[in-house]
Structure formats: structure tokens, C-alpha cells
Simulated assay, not measured.
Amino acid sequence: LTKSYGALDVLSGVDLAVDRGSRLVVLGFNGAGKTTLLRLLAGHEPPDSGRVVHGHGLRLGYFAQEHDTLDPGRTVRQNLAAHAPQLSDGEARTVLGAFLFGGDDADKPAGVLSGGEKTRLALAGLVSSRANVLLLDEPTNNLDPASRAEVLAAVGGYKGAVVMVTHDEEAVEALRPDRVLVLPDGVEDLWSPGYGELVTLA
């Protein structure tokens, strides 16, 4: 994949396969193209060259830093239902409770939620959906301790494949990655503890 914005080359020659159940962490300094890569994989914008090929039976879930997967005019419960329509009302309340939305919180419009609450709601929808690949862009940014604990638990317990961009060592520990992609060079490798030094530097 290659992607440029005007004269700025963001991605150049990135070649990546996300296998069933694999757990990949994407590392790189700010501006290295990490968010752009996830947007390309999610189909939110096209590459300039190369292509994204979906495997058979792919069901993709995407968490964006800007929370643009939430509808601010819908309530917390309605946003969850949009991502996980198979949940009964009781199941939805259980999921929302696990993500610290209790009682009347379910009827709040998503537009009035704090950044941390929006993160929790977006992750609640993704892990409850039928998605088998999650693309997570900085899912632990700006979270209070309780929210952070729930998000890390959700990442750690997710059974499908995960591609995660993060600067957070604890998020990497929760993910337990088997592979790493380092941008902007596009180097893909098996994960080893030596890459841990790049997480916070990035």
C-alpha cells in the first residue's frame, strides 16, 4: 500500500497480512502513518496504489480516535444496538454495566459523553458485535483508571484478530501481540520484548 497527501508520502510499500486470530501491534513515531494505515484497512479511504483484500467471512470492527463510529444523536443503548443488534435488552444492559454505564446512563445521547465514556461505548459495541477482526487506534488515550481497566480487559479477552496502534505499554501487554509492524519503514516481524522499547518512544 502507498498513500500520499499532496507532496507528503505517508505510506510507501506497506505489505501486510492479518491472519485469523493474529494479534498485531503497529508502532511508529507520530506522523509515521499509523492512523492512515488503519483507515485504509477499514475502507474509510482508498490507497494511492496497492489494494486491501478481505478474507472470506471477514467482519471488521474499527475504533477511531475521533469516535466517528458513534452517532452523537443516538443514545448509549441505541449506539450499542447498532453495533450488536443480536443482544437482547437484558444482555445489552449487562454489557453496558460491564463498561461502567449504569442505570440512566443508557438513555444519554452519545453526543454529551466525555471522551473516556465515548471510548468505552465504542469498545463495548465492537467487542459485543460479530466482528472477527478489530482495528483499534489508540484505544486507551485519555481514560480515567476505571475506564482504562475495562478497555484493557476487553482487549485482552477478545477472541478474534486485532490490529492495534498504541503508545501504551499496558495496552501492548493486554494485547499479547504475536507480530509487530514498524512504520514508516513497513517492517513486519515477530513480536519480541525488544520491541517494547519502541512503544513509549513512539
Score class of each variant (00 low, 15 high):
105 D>V: 01
152 L>M: 07
146 A>D: 14
90 G>S: 07
135 L>M: 09
49 S>H: 09
75 T>K: 11
84 A>H: 11
69 T>P: 03
97 G>M: 04
99 F>Q: 04
94 T>Q: 15
156 G>C: 03
162 V>Y: 00
153 A>T: 12
125 G>S: 10
14 V>W: 05
146 A>R: 13
49 S>K: 08
155 V>M: 05
162 V>T: 09
52 V>H: 12
139 P>E: 06
33 G>T: 03
28 G>M: 06
121 L>R: 08
152 L>N: 01
146 A>Y: 10
21 G>C: 14
81 A>W: 12
37 L>K: 00
25 V>I: 12
108 K>V: 01
53 V>A: 15
87 L>T: 11
30 N>C: 13
137 D>F: 04
31 G>M: 13
64 A>Y: 06
87 L>V: 08
20 R>P: 07
112 V>Y: 05
34 K>I: 10
18 V>L: 15
31 G>Q: 06
83 H>D: 09
96 L>E: 01
79 N>W: 12
58 L>D: 09
43 G>M: 00
63 F>K: 07
25 V>R: 12
115 G>F: 07
37 L>H: 00
76 V>E: 02
121 L>T: 06
112 V>N: 01
83 H>I: 03
61 G>T: 05
29 F>H: 12
97 G>R: 12
74 R>T: 07
31 G>H: 06
40 L>V: 06
106 A>H: 13
129 S>K: 03
80 L>R: 13
134 L>R: 05
56 H>Y: 09
80 L>D: 11
139 P>T: 12
72 P>Y: 15
21 G>D: 11
152 L>F: 01
143 L>M: 03
160 G>R: 07
123 L>H: 05
69 T>Q: 15
67 H>E: 02
110 A>W: 01
37 L>Y: 04
145 P>S: 14
143 L>S: 01
122 A>G: 13
93 R>Y: 07
143 L>Y: 07
100 L>S: 10
35 T>W: 00
132 N>R: 09
103 G>M: 04
149 A>E: 15
34 K>S: 10
145 P>L: 14
23 R>N: 11
65 Q>M: 10
